[in-house]
Design a protein around this nucleic acid. Structure first.
Lengths: 113, 113
DNA sequence: TGGATGGTGAAGCAAAAACTTCACTATTGA
DNA sequence: TCAATAGTGAAGTTTTTGCTTCACCATCCA
């Protein structure tokens, strides 16, 4: 519920490819057409299309076609899920390290007493 | 340099599997042996071992063997890289949206004038 | 109108991922 | 000492990825 596993799978999977991360980086600076996204990448337009489909399935990117060009843009809230999972993990082990630190400090205090 | 692509590849790839995320969640609450990690997962120990290798290659997890048991633990700073990439993206498009908002507001002010 | 431009769809293919099983080693502890 | 425990290593299998190529359709615009 809170952490939808399949959704996180698609999200992290989408980010695990440098070409796709490049597309997201480009789109985070503003909308772009498919050819614009393809431009810096040395692969066929079909391949870029497939990457785009992965990004759309992950919810990170949306696109609509006007005329013969398809314009893509970031879905701003999508990355929030991945970000939340990561910070949750970090908080979890930071709390644990705090408890551990407190415990060790107490031990030392007991030793000193 | 700042965003090492291959490193991010391994990181996000490691997080893209629910079994591996489960292992990280478990480890973020404290160290565990391989069998303990394997316990809630319905797969062979060999499979868990292979997931562990992926996690270690990504830098997220470390382990050492004492006697016949291998104890695994989180590498606290590792997730920082992934976290930073995500927040950088978010900041990038938030700045862009701010600029866009300012521009539109100005347009409207001009219309009113 | 017709040729460039921008994008789609469907095969097909090689490599990588995610397992399994089986054989095997090294500890541990009764 | 010997069985149970904990982990390793190496194949082998199936599925998923990440491409390619080629044929094709829909605009746009000179």
């Amino acid at each position: 519920m809170f952490h939808d596993a399949a959704q996180l799978d698609r999200m992290f999977q989408a980010l695990a490819d440098p070409a796709r991360r490049g597309m997201v980086e480009r789109l985070s600076r503003g909308p772009a057409s498919v050819s614009e996204l393809a431009n810096p990448l040395s692969m066929s337009l079909s391949a870029v299309m497939q990457h785009l489909q992965v990004l759309e399935a992950s919810g990170l990117v949306r696109s609509q076609k006007v005329g013969r060009t398809r314009t893509c843009h970031i879905e701003p809230h999508a990355l929030g899920q991945a970000e939340r999972w990561i910070t949750d993990r970090r908080l979890s082990w930071e709390r644990r390290l705090d408890r551990l630190g407190a415990f060790l400090a107490e031990q030392q205090a007991d030793d000193g007493a």
